[in-house]
């Protein structure tokens, strides 16, 4: 009943939740792309690198930009190079194959062994972009018009697609994906994550840091909530300055490492001026955080 296939089990450098591991394996088994969504800074992109490491495969990445076209991922016909070569006689112009360059998706299909392909920030591109790739991702093949060759994937690549939710993705595209939403880490998971970056942190300091951090994230006025990477930076700054947990009780120093928008810093200054209190115990954050 249970078919055998290569399974991802996580790596020491990446703390993945059970459901995430399951979703990765489901995508591998079904041969469908895995769509990853989640707040910025929750490790969507890093996951691909660790999936590749965990499975012992090569990784190819395709970073999508607002000007990226679906066809770019398959191949590009470098007309300008060919024109230049013909002008200066620097290359053999007669062989058009020399001017066909495979894009990341094309390389993934053409590769002899199975690879992990990361399509990063798919929502950056035009709305139609995912639709342009439907057939290629379904059948894992495409043809090069200029040479009428067909590239067929020998091994279905493991495709991971990340989205920051800047645009809605087309339904037809979504239907073909396995979906996982990386939730923002809860306090327990966050302790583990911090421990990877700052081992042996003073427990009382860590408590104060996390209380302030999760309190900030609860504030509705903020336009950009601080993320994990910003928390890690903030702790670095605190350690560098030799801050103790007592100093943190009533203040949030180095606010600039946590809040990146002027309006947000202003909002917090307003809060200061209104003599707003910062929480110092988990109980101050409400029942969700009772430890």
């Amino acid at each position: 009943m249970t078919e055998d296939f290569q399974r991802f089990r996580g790596t020491p450098g990446y703390i993945a939740s059970g459901p995430l591991v399951d979703a990765v394996n489901c995508a591998i088994a079904l041969g469908r792309p895995l769509l990853l969504k989640g707040e910025p800074g929750t490790g969507k992109t890093v996951l691909a690198r660790h999936v590749a490491d965990g499975l012992g495969m090569k990784m190819l990445s395709w970073h999508v930009k607002s000007t990226t076209k679906g066809a770019d991922g398959l191949y590009v016909y470098d007309t300008v190079q060919r024109l230049n070569d013909s002008r200066f006689g620097t290359g053999d112009v007669s062989d058009i194959r020399r001017y066909i360059r495979l894009g990341p998706l094309g390389q993934a299909f053409a590769s002899a062994e199975r690879v992990v392909l990361l399509i990063d920030e798919v929502d950056k591109a035009d709305l139609e972009f995912p639709n342009d790739l439907l057939r290629e991702l379904d059948e894992m093949r495409f043809s090069i018009l200029e040479t009428s060759e067909e590239v067929v994937a020998k091994e279905r690549p493991v495709v991971l697609i990340t989205s920051n939710n800047e645009k809605e993705l087309p339904d037809a595209f979504l239907r073909r994906c396995v979906f996982h939403f990386i939730e923002f880490p809860d306090v327990g998971l966050m302790r583990q994550i911090v421990d990877v970056h700052h081992p042996n942190l003073d427990a009382k300091l860590l408590d104060q840091v996390l209380i302030k951090f999760y309190w900030l994230r609860e504030q509705n006025e903020l336009r950009k909530k601080p993320s994990t990477s910003e928390l890690v930076d903030w702790i670095s700054a605190l350690l560098r300055a030799g801050m103790t947990h007592r100093q943190l009780e009533a203040h949030i120093p180095f606010l600039g490492t946590l809040l990146k928008k002027e309006q947000d810093v202003d909002a917090l200054r307003d809060y200061d001026e209104r003599k707003g209190k910062y929480p110092a115990r988990w109980a101050d954050l409400g029942p969700r955080f009772n430890q």
């Binding site: 979504l174 994906c177 979906f179 996982h180």
Partner: peptide, 10 residues
């Protein structure tokens, strides 16, 4: 989780 990953896309 399997059902959710396969059936729900948002």
């Amino acid at each position: 989780h399997l059902a959710r990953a396969c059936l729900v896309k948002s």
